[in-house]
């Protein structure tokens, strides 16, 4: 080949070298993570510090996010015991949402959750919480029995269904929860990188091809808005499913 061809983005673009020092804790995703914690804290402290009966714009924004999680996810899904899970759900939701949105904010442009370690660690918390809640409420024996042996079906069917239910609760749920978030963020970031880098590459060609570069760049901008929808949706779905698992753990009968 006379000219080097276009090199598409790949999983290698998700590996960052430390910004300073040698520690893995100084890479871009980790710093974004710390920044998100500061950002969330500052926003909600600022919005609730001067709470008034007639809310300011900032207080209104903070309160609408809070009531969205409390009523839309907590109350609707978990039911009468929802109040003690609201802080947990609210933390998960705002944390994932902020970190996802970093993917389209200029100069950050990296969704932290597209590194598998971050979704996995959140999932571990959800996993521990819903099993703990269920074991505390029903006891370990009754929890396992209710989980594997659904009432009202013929006895021989338990041979088929018991291992399936067991695997669903202990392996598939956390696996899909973490993978769904990771996969969506990874794919979204890859897509945006592809159109941006493609547009940049085409810009260096003959003037006829520069037109296609413009198309590529405008697609990247359009897809950024599309990504924003996905990022909000994934944060919502993660929290909703966490609430559903807790609700299932609290239900009287499995």
């Amino acid at each position: 080949m006379a000219q080097p061809g276009f090199e598409p983005p790949g999983s290698g673009d998700f590996i960052f070298t430390p910004i300073f020092g040698n520690s893995i804790l100084a890479t871009k995703p980790v710093l974004l993570l710390f920044f998100s914690v500061i950002l969330i804290s500052v926003f909600f402290i600022a919005s609730s510090r001067k709470a008034a009966v007639v809310p300011s714009k900032l207080q209104f924004a903070g309160e609408s996010i809070y009531s969205f999680v409390r009523d839309g996810i907590g109350k609707d899904v978990i039911g009468h015991e929802f109040q003690r899970f609201v802080p947990f759900l609210f933390t998960i939701f705002t944390f994932i949402l902020t970190n996802n949105l970093f993917g389209i904010i200029p100069f950050m442009q990296f969704p932290t959750m597209s590194h598998i370690g971050f979704p996995v660690s959140i999932t571990i918390f959800v996993y521990l919480v819903y099993h703990y809640v269920a074991i505390k409420k029903h006891g370990l024996g009754k929890y396992l029995k209710d989980m594997c042996f659904m009432p009202g079906i013929p006895k021989p069917m338990y041979v088929l269904l018991a291992p399936l239910e067991f695997l669903t609760y202990f392996a598939i749920r956390p696996l899909t929860l973490a993978m769904r978030l990771f996969g969506n963020m990874f794919a979204g970031h890859l897509l945006l990188m592809l159109f941006t880098l493609g547009g940049e590459y085409l810009l260096g060609s003959a003037w006829v091809i520069k037109i296609f570069s413009a198309i590529s760049f405008s697609l990247a901008i359009g897809l950024s808005f599309f990504e924003m929808g996905i990022q909000c949706l994934q944060a919502y779905i993660f929290t909703l499913l966490a609430a559903l698992y807790i609700a299932g753990a609290l239900a009287d009968e499995h």
């Binding site: 899904v77 299932g248 239900a251 009968e253």
Partner: peptide
């Protein structure tokens, strides 16, 4: 009891 379970799982469409 069983109804409640199904109801929870179907809650959000």
């Amino acid at each position: 009891m069983e109804d409640r379970k199904v109801d929870i799982l179907n809650k959000d469409g």
